[in-house]
Simulated scan of single mutants.
Amino acid sequence: MLDLAAPLFLLLLPLPFLARRLLPPHAAQEGALYLPEAFAAAARPTSAFARSERWEGALRAILWLALVLALAGPERLKAVPDLSASGREIVLTLDMSGSMLIEDFDIDGVQSTRLEAVKRVARSFVEERQGDRIGLVLFANRAYVAAPLTFDLAAVGRAIEEASIGITGRSTAIADGLGLALKRVTEGAAASRVIVLLSDGQDNAHQIDARQVAALAARHGVRIHTIALGPDDLETRPAARDAVDTATLRAIAEASRGRSYRVRGMEDLRAMAADLDRLEPNPAERPPVLVPEPLWRWPALVALGAALALGLSRAGLALRQRRTGRAA
């Protein structure tokens, strides 16, 4: 799509024509020198001179048209993805307890650990969030910030890929991880602040109740979406060794006006990621924006070429006239 940045400059196009019609003609001066017929015939304009005049007239017209068009600022409107900041901050808070090494997920027909499945979906989720600030908090016995809130999604993806079990123990301090994520996300002034909390166990290394952290998040306008990961939970199999505490995770989400998810396999994990994109609209899905690409340089180059050709034409005509005069 082509457009003009300053179309009013096109009003200058008829200016040479108007000047020629409206300005008084230049008064011709009487010749004071009488020449013999032979010299006068040599001084009269020839057909070559007439052709040169027509050529120069065309060059002057091209030069003027190109200059006016360049001043009008032609531009091409290109549709590009809207990569502007969305005003949303999301902190992924991932459980790094020992139970994340249990191999009960099927990834493309290969038995894989819970950690590998979470990494795959989390990386995919982060890659699509252009325009959001994303951070990463990992927790086990203690919590730490693996990636601060940033627009550098590639750095967050690398932090997810490098996450490993055992760096801060093998227990599950959900409240500590949630508290650290809340501290980070409330430090800024984003219009929308979200925590995505994933755990596959019970809060067995806490110093405060995770529900209290959720209530504090609600007072600060922070939504917490929780993901209960694993085949067993305390509600259906309370005696299971690695059962996830779905009730606590659900209570955290409800207290902060978030959404709670129950994930037992890879399909549930993908569906959860898709639903999060719906709840927290993906900036990558925003309509493209039209960005102007200036094109004035092309008519400017045409004008430059016409000016050079006009100068060369006049120089050539002057040279031919001198040679004709010497021959006469």
Rank of each mutant, 00 (worst) to 15 (best):
A303N: 04
V91L: 02
A253T: 05
L249G: 02
G188A: 14
P288S: 04
A72N: 08
L269R: 02
A255Y: 07
E235N: 05
S256I: 10
G157P: 00
E161M: 00
A147P: 02
W64T: 13
L301G: 11
V80P: 09
A210S: 04
V145K: 07
F125M: 05
R184W: 07
F105P: 10
L304W: 10
L198D: 02
R114G: 01
L13K: 12
L83Q: 15
D233Q: 08
D132Q: 11
P288G: 04
L92M: 11
E53A: 09
A122W: 08
L249W: 02
G201F: 13
G169V: 14
D95F: 02
A327Y: 09
A43E: 15
D82Y: 14
A175W: 00
H26D: 10
A79P: 01
P74Q: 05
R219C: 03
R259F: 01
G230A: 11
R133F: 03
L153K: 06
P81C: 00
I167M: 15
R142W: 08
A154D: 13
D209T: 00
G230Y: 12
A303K: 03
S86K: 12
M266N: 14
S86I: 10
A303P: 01
L279W: 02
A61I: 01
T186R: 10
L23R: 13
A27K: 15
M96Y: 04
L59F: 00
A303S: 04
A318C: 07
D277R: 13
A43W: 11
A239S: 12
P74T: 01
A143R: 04
G109T: 13
A32W: 15
I134D: 03
L8H: 06
A284S: 10
R278V: 09
P148M: 06
F125G: 04
F17H: 06
I62T: 15
E103H: 09
L310Y: 12
A190G: 13
I227D: 02
L138P: 05
Q111A: 11
R219F: 00
A48S: 05
G188W: 08
L63Y: 07
L301C: 09
I107Q: 14
A50W: 12
A253D: 07
L35F: 15
L319N: 06
A228E: 01
R264N: 08
Q130A: 14
A163F: 07
A181D: 00
P292S: 06
L295C: 00
N282R: 14
A6P: 00
L317W: 08
A66E: 09
A66F: 06
L15Q: 08
A253M: 06
I165H: 05
E267M: 08
A159N: 08
L136F: 12
